[in-house]
């Protein structure tokens, strides 16, 4: 089964890192996976996006237009990528920045996580992408949240002062996803 996600946001929101952590986690699970980012200049302040696909067989197109999940970190990516969610697929939005009245489609699911708010409450806007990663892994089941969390912590092996903050960010994201799943039922 192939599962795909497109993530988009401002450069500097950690979109690329979020996608890379996801593929690292998929690799830890010995899944076949691809990460593709249209290159150019995704400098701070610009827009940035990446597509991650996991599968149990060879992956052909790493950049397909229609994906199972879109994760919008900000409004411009929400507007740009909403149409790329597959029918019956899911749009995950950073609900601190994107309100429900912006939703335009009836044939997909929407779910929000106030990621910017959470990261600010935790004391660092930098962990925004880790909140989203935790949320996405738990919500989509694309990779095991536990595995993804280990991958995140491995990134900070040499900077132990950041471990606690990132652990909390990831776990908060996971908890939010559990709540959202329950609400959906």
């Amino acid at each position: 089964m192939e599962k795909s996600v497109l993530m988009g946001g401002f450069g500097g929101q950690g979109v690329q890192t979020c996608g890379k952590l996801l593929i690292y986690a998929a690799n830890e699970e010995d899944k076949i996976a691809t990460f593709y980012s249209q290159y150019g200049g995704a400098m701070r302040g610009g827009t940035s996006n990446c597509t991650v696909i996991t599968s149990d067989e060879e992956i052909g197109a790493p950049n397909k237009k229609i994906v199972d999940y879109v994760v919008a970190f900000n409004i411009p990516s929400f507007k740009k990528f909403e149409e790329r969610v597959a029918v019956g697929g899911t749009m995950i939005v950073n609900s601190t920045l994107i309100s429900e009245d912006m939703y335009t489609r009836k044939d997909i699911n929407y779910v929000g996580v106030p990621a910017t708010q959470i990261s600010q409450d935790l004391g660092s806007p930098k962990v925004l992408n880790v909140v989203i990663l935790g949320f996405f892994c738990e919500y989509s089941g694309m990779v095991e949240p536990k595995v993804a969390q280990e991958v995140v912590l491995k990134q900070f092996a040499k900077k132990p002062q950041f471990i606690e903050m990132n652990t909390r960010a990831f776990e908060t994201g996971v908890a939010e996803a559990k709540k959202a799943k329950k609400a959906k039922k």
């Binding site: 593929i23 691809t34 593709y36 980012s37 290159y39």
Partner: peptide, 10 residues
């Protein structure tokens, strides 16, 4: 090409 050069895989 630029696609394969920038593609990340296992």
């Amino acid at each position: 090409d630029g696609m394969l050069g920038h593609l990340i895989e296992s």
